[in-house]
Structures are given as C-alpha cells and as structure tokens.
Design a protein around this nucleic acid. Structure first.
Lengths: 197, 197
DNA sequence: GTCTATAGGATGATAGAC
DNA sequence: GTCTATCATCCTATAGAC
C-alpha cells in the first residue's frame, strides 16, 4: 500500500467525519464548508479540493454513514421472527449513537422537498429497506412462523415508520421516550398478531 | 369591526400563508424573507414591520398551522375506539393537504437540533399529543373497550410515531405509500390487540 | 405602513501562487 | 495538496424618508 494513498484516504475520512457532525447539527442548508474545514484544520479551499462542491460532500457523507452502519439489517440469513428481533437490536444500537440518528433525521426531514440533494438518497434508502423487511416477513410466512396471508409491504412500511417516528420523538425529548423499549414491544405485539392460527 | 383592523389582520394572514409555503419548501434555514415578501408583494423591510424577525415569523407560522388544523384531535368527547378511528380520519385528511404535512415534516426534522427556533414548539406539541392520545386510550379502558392493564403512554408514542413516520415516507415517495390506508390498518390491529379477553 | 438604502456578515466557489 | 485572495451573491436587520 502506497503511503500517499493511505494518508489521502485517511484525510478524506477525517473530512467525512467532520462533515457528518456539521450536517447533523445544522442540516444541509445550515451547514458551512468553512466550519467543516476548520474542524479538520484545513482551509475552505483545501476542503473543496477533495470534494468539488457542498452537494457532492453531502452525498459522500450519506454513503459514509451507510457504510458505518455496521449493524446493517442483514436478513439474508435471518428472516422471520429472528429478523424482527434483529430490527429491534438495530434500534437499541441506534440509541447509543445519537449523532448518526440525528444526521439521518435532519437530512430526511429536509429531503422531503424535491430538489434537495438528499432527495434521491432518501428515496432509494426507503425502497431498499422496505424490500428487505418485506422479504424477511415473507420468508417468515413461508417457514410457518407467520400466517400466510400477511401483507408484507404494508407491515414493512409500518415497521420503518415506527423506527423513524420514534427516532424523532427521542431526539426531541430523550428523557421521555425510551425508543428501544417501545419499538421492541411493538415488534412483540406484531409477532403475536402475525402468528398463524 | 374597524376597517383598519380588518385589513391589517388580513394582510398578516396573507403573510403567514406565504411564509408557510416558503418554510415548507425550504425549511427555516433555507427560507428567505425576501422571497416571502415577494409572494405577498411587499418589500422585505415591509414584511419585517409585521413580524420583527425571521424567528418570530416562524413561530407565528407554526401557531397558524395549528390553528388551521381544524380537524384537530378532539377527544374530550370521543375516547376509546372512536378516538382511534378519529385519529385515522386525521391522517386521511392530511393526505389531502401535502403542504401542511410538509411544513410539519421539514420543521420537525430541523427542530431536533437544540437551539433551533422550532425546538420548543416541537417538544410541546409532542407532549400535548402524547397526553391527549394516552388519555383517550385510558378512557377506552375504563369503558371496557380496551383491556385494563394497557400501557397508554407507550401506545400513544407508537401511534404518534406511526403517523409521523408514514408522513415522511409518503412525502418522499407518494406513489408507493398509501399513508391513510396503512395507518388505518394499524389502528384496526391495535383495537384487536387491546381488546379485553 | 411601506418604501429605499445600506449596514454588516456569511456563503459557496474559483483563480492562481507555491 | 494546500494556501491566500477574491468574486459574486445572498442574507437578516436597521435607519430614516414619506
């Protein structure tokens, strides 16, 4: 591995981490390239050498966030009840990384307006998540853990909505909302409702 | 009613309506007083004569939005199953006013960061909503429609999270998400789960 | 109440030296 | 790769005339 390459990549990663913080705290529109540059002890022009524009930096940060999301919802193996429990684990994990959750909430909120640089990212993210969760539900039905007639897409939408909605409440009022516990009890109820008769 | 007063109020309301649009499209940070002024054919300085600052204008808009919300969740009368059905009606109504929903989503997203002028508003809103919904659930339990031991606060949080989460999905991908239908089916399932044995 | 003018900044992006 | 300098806007808010 060449040294120049390694330091270059390391530099880029430090920039991404700093940008993530800035975007999470101020949103895309409120974020400032100068402040991000300051956090990594670089001039604003130097920052723009690595990422050509603010917009490109944001999408790089969003991809970076996804890559950080180690505990990704991996259901190729799980599926069924295990997959739902794994989803609850994700929420529990999220409760320990408010910064990442805040980035997601702030950007998602902004990104509902068409033309926002995160709009496409948000849409792709929802579609992929919905497909993954729905697939897990269907595999549970095939295995006899859930009843056969379930509407997988609708339940996937609900699970995702519950996760996102609880995140917002939790961020706004952390002491009043036990995000992980509430989500887990929803999952438990869901398992009951979907149980085959 | 004095004429001067009436035109003054009407003017203010036109400003609020224009500001609502602008904030919904661009968020608080992305909104511009000059563009709002333009929409009501007023100079930017003229606009600031009616609302002293951008921040005060935002909170006025948020209050205005709440006042527009005619179909407010009024449960003093309803309670129990009727109240849950009324909630589903609210969601159905919201599906017809994307502008209002978008204002709410965008501002709520921004407002998770402390120091945002909408932060307090969002917190108050959640607490009030949670209290109202929880009260409705408890009144249902007292009347024997729901089982006695239910955790009213947790279910209230879930209902609110579901509403808000579905709104985001719907705004980002309107064709794929039937917000009202999905919420209604959640409510129906909940009524089943909470039914006394 | 409404205007013009302007203060006083901050912003993203580019040019060009080193 | 990193810098300084600068461009060209944009912004909120205020002062003061009418």
């Amino acid at each position: 591995m060449k040294r120049g390459y390694a330091t270059g990549e390391a530099r880029k990663e430090r920039i991404l981490a700093a940008a993530l913080l800035e975007f999470a705290e101020n949103g895309y529109r409120g974020a400032s390239l100068a402040r991000i540059a300051e956090r990594v002890e670089l001039s604003q022009a130097g920052l723009l050498h690595h990422f050509k524009s603010k917009e490109l930096l944001l999408v790089a940060v969003l991809d970076y966030r996804d890559s950080l999301d180690t505990r990704k919802f991996d259901l190729g193996s799980a599926g069924g009840i295990d997959a739902l429990r794994a989803l609850a684990d994700v929420v529990e994990h999220n409760a320990r990384v408010p910064g990442l959750v805040q980035l997601f909430s702030v950007i998602s909120g902004e990104a509902v307006t068409p033309g926002h640089p995160g709009h496409e990212w948000a849409r792709r993210r929802y579609r992929r998540l919905r497909a993954d969760v729905a697939a897990a539900l269907r595999s549970g039905a095939e295995r006899g853990e859930f009843r056969p007639g379930l509407d997988a897409e609708a339940h996937a939408d609900r699970l995702i909505a519950m996760m996102d909605g609880l995140q917002t409440q939790w961020l706004i009022d952390p002491d009043r909302v036990d995000m992980a516990a509430i989500f887990r009890s929803y999952v438990d109820d869901l398992i009951t409702v979907l149980r085959p008769e």
